[in-house]
Design a protein around this nucleic acid. Structure first.
Length: 502
RNA sequence: GGUCCAUUCGUCUAGUGGCUAGGACGUCAGGUUUUCAUCCUGGUAACAGGGGUUCGAUUCCCCUAUGGACUACCA
C-alpha cells in the first residue's frame, strides 16, 4: 500500500472551532498511526468570505494543540502551494478536461434566473434541481446550438462549468465509518465546478488537489456526506482512483439544537474555540481559559472516538498508538464542560509543584504580587489537589497573601461564641511564646493547650481559622500558620479579636 | 418538501442473539477532614416506539418517531 497521506483543509472564514480541531486531530492521529503525512491545505476559493487573520489562527491553533503539520504553508513540502488561491492556475484545465470528455458543460444562466426558477418551483411545492430533467431547457452548452454557445464564450459572456450528472444511476459509496451507502443520481444536481469569477468551487478544487497531493484518505466532517456521490463521480470522470473516505460525526451544540458553529462564540458558557479570537466579534478560547493543550486534546479525542478500554487519560503519543478510524462513533456528540474541567484537573495534578509555581507566579503578577518561588512551591503543595486550573490557585490561596478585612457573616455566627475572644487571646499568648511556627510543633502545642484548658477542639480551631482566613474554608490551619509566619499570625488574631469582640 | 445519516443512563460511551447492560463525568448518600475542597466507598440513572425473524432480541430486518446534515457560482 502506498504511503498514507491525509489532509486537513479548512477555509479561512474565521476562527477554527473545536469541531474543526477535532477533525484535524483525527487526521493527525491517523497519519501518525500509519506512519503517514499530515498536510494542511487552506481552501480559500471563495474570495468573498476571506477573513483577515483566520489563516494564521488556524495554524496557531493546531500548533498550540500539539498537532504537527508535515506539509503546509509554514512547513513547505513537495506538493505545494498549499493555499488554493495560489493554485488558481491549476484548476481551469481540469474543468476543461471534463467538458471535453462530455462530463461537464458551460452554463450561462444568471444567478437571478436561477433564483427565479427556485422561487417558482417553491410556489408549486417543488424543489428546483438543475439536472438532467431540466437542463435541456436552460441556458447552457447542452441545450444551445454549438455556434450559439461558442459565440457566447468568445464574446466573454459570464459562464460557469457544471458537472453533467447522469439522469438515473445508482452510485455505491463506501465510508470507513458508515459502511455502504447507495444514492441515485436522479436526486442529485449538476453542481457548479468552476465559477464565473475564474475560481473553482470546493468540489472541483479539493478533488484536483487531493489527487495532485496524493491524498490516500479523506477524513472530514459529516456535513460532506451528501456531496460524496458527486465527488465519487468526479473521480470516475477523471479516471482517477478515489481515496478512502471517512465522515466524522458532528459536534453538537450542548443545549440541544444543531451542530456547533462558529457563531456560537462563547454564548454557551464555555469556549468553542481553541484560542482567543481577537478580530471583529471577539471570542474566548480554551488556552486563555487556562486549559492545558494536552487536556484539551485528550478531551476532544474522546468526543466521538474511544479506545474500547476504560482508559481515559491519553498523551498524544498514546492517542496515536490507540487510534483507529473504525472506533470512531457514528452519532454526533455534545460535549460536557464539566468533563472538560475534569480532564484539566487530571493534567494539572500531573504537573510538578515547581512548574505550577512558575505558572502561578505569572498569574500573581496580575495581582501585583511577587512571591519567592520556593515559598510558592510549598503553597502549591498545600492546595494543589483542590485545583483544576492555575487561576484557581488564587481562589484557594488569596488569604495567604492578603489578611482578611472582613469576616464571613455565617461563619461568624456559627464559630464566634461569647467566650471565643478570650480563648483566642490565650491562644495568641501561647503562640507568641513559641520560637517556631512550623506546623508540627504548633499543632502539638495548640492541642495540649486545648486539652489543658478543657476547651473544645472544634470550637477553637474553627474560630482560629475564622481569624486567619476570614471564612470557613482553606487547607489545614497549621499549614497556613507556618506559611504566613508568626508575626502575621499574631497580627491576624489581634485584628480579628478587635473586630469580632471578646 | 426532497436526499442521506444517526438513535444505550442527564452527558461522553462500552457491549452481546441468552450479561445483574459495564465505565467515566455529573448528581445523591455515607466516610475521612477542626472548615471548605480534595479523596474514598456506595447509590441513582439507559437499550426511542411498534412490528417481525428467532426457542430467545438491546443486538438482525421493516415501519414509525425523534434528532442531525445537506439541498448556493459557501466551504
Amino acid at each position: 500500500m502506498s504511503q498514507v497521506r491525509v489532509r486537513f483543509a479548512p477555509s479561512p472564514t474565521g476562527p477554527l472551532h473545536i469541531g474543526g480541531v477535532r477533525t484535524a486531530l483525527y487526521n493527525y492521529l491517523f497519519a501518525r498511526k500509519n506512519n503517514g503525512s499530515f498536510l494542511l491545505r487552506i481552501e480559500d476559493t471563495d474570495q468573498t468570505r476571506f477573513v483577515e487573520g483566520a489563516e494564521k489562527y488556524i495554524m496557531d491553533a493546531l500548533e498550540w494543540s500539539g498537532i504537527k503539520v508535515d506539509e503546509g504553508i509554514r512547513e513547505g513540502g513537495n506538493y505545494g502551494p498549499y493555499r488554493q488561491s495560489d493554485r488558481k492556475a491549476i484548476y481551469k484545465q481540469y474543468a476543461d478536461l471534463l467538458v471535453q470528455k462530455g462530463d461537464a458543460y458551460y452554463a450561462f444562466d444568471t444567478q437571478e434566473q436561477l433564483e427565479n426558477m427556485r422561487n417558482e418551483a417553491e410556489k408549486s411545492g417543488k424543489t428546483f434541481i438543475y439536472n438532467a430533467s431540466v437542463r435541456s431547457g436552460l441556458n447552457n452548452s447542452l441545450a444551445l446550438e454549438e455556434n450559439v454557445w461558442k459565440e457566447k464564450l468568445e464574446k466573454g459572456d459570464a459562464f460557469v462549468i457544471r458537472y453533467r450528472m447522469p439522469a438515473e444511476e445508482e452510485i455505491h459509496l463506501h465510508d470507513l465509518i458508515r459502511g455502504h451507502i447507495v444514492v441515485n443520481t436522479s436526486t442529485l444536481d449538476d453542481k457548479v465546478l468552476f465559477k464565473s469569477d475564474g475560481m473553482p468551487t470546493y468540489h472541483l478544487a479539493h478533488i484536483v488537489d487531493d489527487r495532485l497531493m496524493e491524498i490516500t484518505h479523506v477524513i472530514r466532517g459529516e456535513e460532506w456526506l451528501p456531496s460524496l456521490p458527486l465527488h465519487i463521480m468526479l473521480y470516475r470522470s477523471f479516471r482517477w482512483d478515489a481515496p478512502q473516505f471517512a465522515h466524522l460525526p458532528l459536534l453538537l451544540k450542548p443545549d440541544g439544537k444543531g451542530k456547533l458553529s462558529k457563531r456560537d462564540g462563547d454564548k454557551m458558557g464555555f469556549p468553542v474555540f481553541p484560542l482567543f479570537w481577537p478580530y471583529g466579534e471577539t471570542a474566548k478560547g480554551y488556552r486563555e481559559d487556562g486549559y492545558y493543550p494536552e487536556a484539551f486534546v485528550n478531551m476532544l479525542a474522546l468526543l466521538g472516538w474511544n479506545p474500547g478500554t476504560e482508559k481515559e487519560i491519553f498523551s498524544m503519543d498514546e492517542l496515536i498508538e490507540a487510534f483507529s478510524i473504525e472506533r470512531v462513533g457514528k452519532s454526533g456528540s455534545r460535549f460536557d464542560p464539566e468533563k472538560a474541567r475534569w480532564f484539566n484537573h487530571q493534567y494539572l495534578q500531573k504537573k510538578t509543584n515547581s512548574q505550577l509555581a512558575a505558572e502561578f507566579s505569572e498569574f500573581l503578577k496580575t495581582k501585583s504580587i511577587v512571591e519567592d518561588i520556593v515559598r510558592l512551591e510549598s503553597l502549591i503543595g498545600i492546595v494543589k489537589e483542590r485545583v483544576s486550573f492555575v487561576r484557581e490557585f488564587w481562589d484557594q490561596t488569596d488569604f495567604f497573601f492578603i489578611a482578611p478585612e472582613s469576616y464571613d457573616t455565617d461563619a461568624v455566627k456559627k464559630r464566634w461564641k461569647a467566650d471565643t475572644g478570650s480563648q483566642m487571646i490565650g491562644l495568641r499568648a501561647l503562640m507568641a511564646g513559641m520560637n517556631t511556627v512550623a506546623a508540627a510543633p504548633v499543632e502539638e502545642a495548640v492541642k495540649s493547650w486545648i486539652e489543658a484548658g478543657g476547651y473544645n477542639t472544634g470550637i477553637i480551631m474553627n474560630a482560629l481559622r475564622l481569624l486567619l482566613v476570614g471564612a470557613s474554608r482553606g487547607p489545614g490551619i497549621f499549614e497556613i500558620i507556618e506559611w504566613i509566619g508568626k508575626e502575621e499570625t499574631l497580627r491576624r488574631i489581634d485584628r480579628g479579636v478587635a473586630v469580632l469582640g471578646i
